[in-house]
Amino acid sequence: MSYFLARRIAGFLLTLFVVSIVVFAVMNVLPGDPALTILGLDSTEEARAALRGRLGLDEPVVQRYLAWIGGALHGDLGQSYSFDVPVSGLIAERLPLTLSLAVSGMALTIGLALTMGLTAAARHGRAGDWAIMLLSQLGIAVPAFWLSMLLVLLFAVKLRWLPPGGFPGWGDPVAAARSLVLPTVALALVQSAVLARVTRSAALEVMRQDFVRTARATGFAPRHVLWRHVLPNALVPIVTIVGLQFAGLVTGTIVIENVFYLPGLGRLLFQSIANRDLITVQALVMLFAAIVVTANFLVDIAYVVIDPRLRAQRA
């Protein structure tokens, strides 16, 4: 167990390290002169030289990388060029919104997908199964931002039930929650399509196994058999996809925040791109990539928690 864990952790840290090099290289080295990127082509050489000095761009590349990553490990992500405040402060300020959106989106995704997938599996080959599969096929093809626009058209423009966008701040929790409803739904509807299909096929696979017959022969209701006996055994493929979907969720929040004008990390990322604030962009891209890598790592660990047989194998 500990050997398995140690190997996974080592792999995880190595991936993070390589990812940080890629991010640093793309943002800092490949474009040539970051000062030129930040200040634009019409800037003067003096201004660019001054900025290079301020940002420490005259140092050797390796030293710059070490300074960046060393600072990041201490929570210092540098000074935002456009906002002129520490990037870590900007992130801390906007993290709660993005986190709320991601967590509620993921929760709704999982709830929807498991319900749809298991319902379809239980009605395998019948009308309910077909309807759910058709719906999920559509869900995969619909871009989240377009679905968002349609939701806004219906619930904000036509029915006026919910705000079309913007965020009133956490001071008014009800208003804050209301403004997160449509973004969460848009995120979850699209995300749950793939997961529902995976849940269905994993459940069908499990339902062919003998212990499901045992559970039925013990007189349990179909719903109980499905959630208590089928679902846990179908979890390995489901968790894999949930982990992979975390990437989709992260990029999904970036897009959705921009559709609904929600001041979270995704919006910050775009403002920073517009402001050519490379330092903030670099920090945010690294953060998003780190979240995805961490999610993949946690999925690896989760397998072992789910299945006692794997626990024994990998001990």
Binding site: T15, V18, V19, V22, V23, V26, M27, L30, P31, T37, L244, A247, G248, V250, T251, I254, V255, L269, S272, I273, L278, V281, V285, F288, A289, V292, V293, N296
Partner: peptide, 22 residues
């Protein structure tokens, strides 16, 4: 190729757009 899984396509594109212009 494992690294590919760390970068969703959208995030990678955003990074390139930020560095080289959209």
């Amino acid at each position: 190729s494992d690294l590919g899984f760390a970068f969703p396509a959208l995030l990678f594109a955003i990074m390139l757009a930020a560095a080289f212009g959209p």
